[in-house]
Computed example of a mutant assay.
Amino acid sequence: MERAPARLVLLPHAGGSVAALPWRARLPRAVAEGVVDLELPGHGRRFGAPFAPSLRALAAALAADIRAAVGDVPVLFQGHSMGALLAYEIARERCAQGGAVAGLVLSGRAAPRWPAARDAPPRHLCADAVLVDELRRLGGTPAEVLAAPDLMDLVLPVVRDDFRLVETYRWEPGPRLRVPAVVLGGRDDPATSPAALAAWGEVITGPLRVEHWPGGHFFPYPEPQRLADLIGHYAVAAPLPAGAHAG
């Protein structure tokens, strides 16, 4: 079977690992064989690696890793929550370097210019007990992990630093990305209102499609096959020319 024309980069939510994303195992074979073997520092098999100083610095480093791995082959980026923001910034970096971006599949994240609700204090500065309560509220961490102190001692520093990356991120003006994109949000996730998702059109010219799926912040997890099918569709679609920007 031939590999899909676009390589795929998967980017997880805060504290997550690419290997643990449930839709990865459900991708069409031609797409799965083109997944770029990428992991964030401090996550998964790179556990213990130094954390990045900022989300933009992390995006630049990952863009360089991707370019070394695939050269100018078109890349499709899929990211959830923090991963969606990181996918967007890596795509910006790749386009600026003349690399090809086949598209973006973004979920669980308001547009980068959308005003964020500020926590007081920010989550990355909260006490461990408060951070655990936040993870429980969001619903993306298995109950057995939350109930295991030894596991949480390993998980919390990673989650805390990921929250730092997101909460200290500031969007910087630049050309809009002229790439196809689909933006997904959970109907019960207050952070991804229709307006917050539509605002991605301020930074991506598209064609841009916005959809609301049933569920809260981690809405793709109960239906991983649905997201895998969507990713597969974009991975086999004809990519745009390399480095496409629009003013």
Rank of each mutant, 00 (worst) to 15 (best):
A32E: 11
G48C: 10
A19I: 13
A129T: 08
G140V: 04
D128I: 01
R94F: 00
L146E: 06
A52Y: 07
L40E: 08
G83L: 10
R176M: 15
E223S: 11
F51H: 12
P74E: 07
R109Q: 15
A181G: 12
A191N: 12
V130G: 00
A25M: 09
P5F: 06
A111F: 13
F163E: 07
P207R: 09
P22Q: 04
F47N: 09
V182Y: 08
V31W: 06
M82W: 12
M82C: 05
A102G: 01
A68M: 12
A237I: 13
E2A: 14
A143K: 06
D189V: 13
D128Q: 06
A61V: 06
L62D: 00
L85I: 11
G186A: 13
S107K: 03
L55D: 10
G243M: 11
A242T: 07
L230T: 09
E172C: 05
Y234I: 03
A68Q: 15
R3M: 10
P12M: 06
A238G: 00
W171P: 09
L131I: 02
R178T: 06
G34N: 03
Q78Y: 15
G174T: 08
R109V: 01
R209D: 11
E93I: 00
V75A: 04
R3Q: 14
E172F: 02
P115S: 15
L156K: 10
A148K: 07
Q225T: 10
A110M: 14
G247Q: 12
A87K: 05
V158D: 12
A14G: 13
L197A: 09
L165K: 11
V236P: 07
P157W: 15
G216I: 12
P53R: 07
G16R: 11
P41W: 08
V210Y: 07
R7F: 06
A181T: 09
P173F: 04
D133R: 15
L138P: 00
H80W: 08
